[in-house]
């Protein structure tokens, strides 16, 4: 294997070792989307009733569950690439120590992104199991959901770490989450795009999470069409650009 793959894997290993003792934290986050699904799907679902998804009448649980896959992939990645990333970058100088070894900035970043993606993907896959058990999956297309979730995780790993490179202290994360929370709510996780006023729809469609949610919902419902290419393209391009920018930022911060 080439260094570009092998060296980032050592960063992943480091994270596995570090989480070995705190695996409870990892696993407990798995239950969050399940509680959401129960509360929203069953509770709110009773009030909302069935809704129309591309011609099919589906329950609210069927609607919201795919959205929760995308958000759990996002949250898994974001957590590692914000608080943990900041700790390693500024507080603990973990990256500085790594850079005294053969690892370079790109290796460190790729390793961290891969780890965040794996973590986000892990939540998505376990949640998919729950969805299957509750009969919320309607198509063989759903087999592609883990791949889509990994892409969502990777994109938010890149975007999250980009924001983090600008944080000057822990308080700055309040600002960061002030930006990400509305994204979460605006993403069609909870309401279909048609619910929003016409002028707001392009805004929703421009946000990163929307593309993950819509793609995964199409895969879960079997309503895949050409829009899937657009979603994948958006996420790949966003990931590549953000990763490049983070790479630059880290160079500026760490290699003075």
């Amino acid at each position: 294997m080439s260094a570009a793959v092998l060296l980032p894997l050592r960063v992943v290993e480091r994270n596995i070792v570090s989480y070995r003792r705190t695996w409870v934290i990892l696993v407990s986050a798995m239950f969050e989307p399940i509680f959401f699904l129960y509360g929203l799907g069953v509770g709110l679902g009773r009030l909302v009733g069935d809704l129309d998804w591309q011609g099919d009448m589906i329950t609210y649980a069927q609607f919201v569950a795919p959205g929760l896959i995308a958000t759990s992939a996002m949250n898994g990645a974001i957590f590692d690439m914000t608080f943990n990333f900041y700790f390693k970058l500024k507080e603990n100088r973990t990256f500085e120590a790594m850079l005294a070894s053969p690892l370079s900035i790109a290796h460190v970043l790729d390793g961290e992104m891969a780890w965040a993606m794996i973590r986000g993907g892990f939540y998505s896959v376990t949640f998919m199991g729950v969805m299957y058990a509750f009969g919320l999956i309607a198509s063989w297309w759903a087999l592609l959901i883990p791949l889509a979730a990994l892409l969502v995780g990777l994109m938010f790993a890149a975007l999250g770490s980009f924001g983090t490179t600008f944080a000057r202290n822990w308080q700055d994360f309040d600002i960061l989450f002030l930006i990400t929370q509305p994204l979460f709510l605006l993403s069609t996780t909870f309401f279909a795009l048609e619910v929003y006023p016409t002028w707001l729809r392009p805004v929703v469609q421009a946000t990163p999470l929307y593309h993950g949610v819509d793609l995964i919902r199409d895969l879960a419902r079997g309503t895949v069409d050409s829009s899937a290419f657009g979603h994948v393209a958006y996420m790949v391009i966003a990931t590549v650009i953000a990763r490049r920018l983070v790479n630059k930022r880290l160079g500026k911060l760490l290699l003075q």
């Binding site: 092998l6 060296l7 050592r10 290993e13 480091r14 070792v17 570090s18 603990n92 100088r93 973990t94 500085e96 120590a97 790594m98 070894s101 053969p102 690892l103």
Partner: peptide, 20 residues
Amino acid sequence: NLDAALTLRENLMVYARYFG
């Protein structure tokens, strides 16, 4: 700049891994 998330032994082992 020791790795605060790891034990002493893990610090050395993980660091050795960085060197392959």
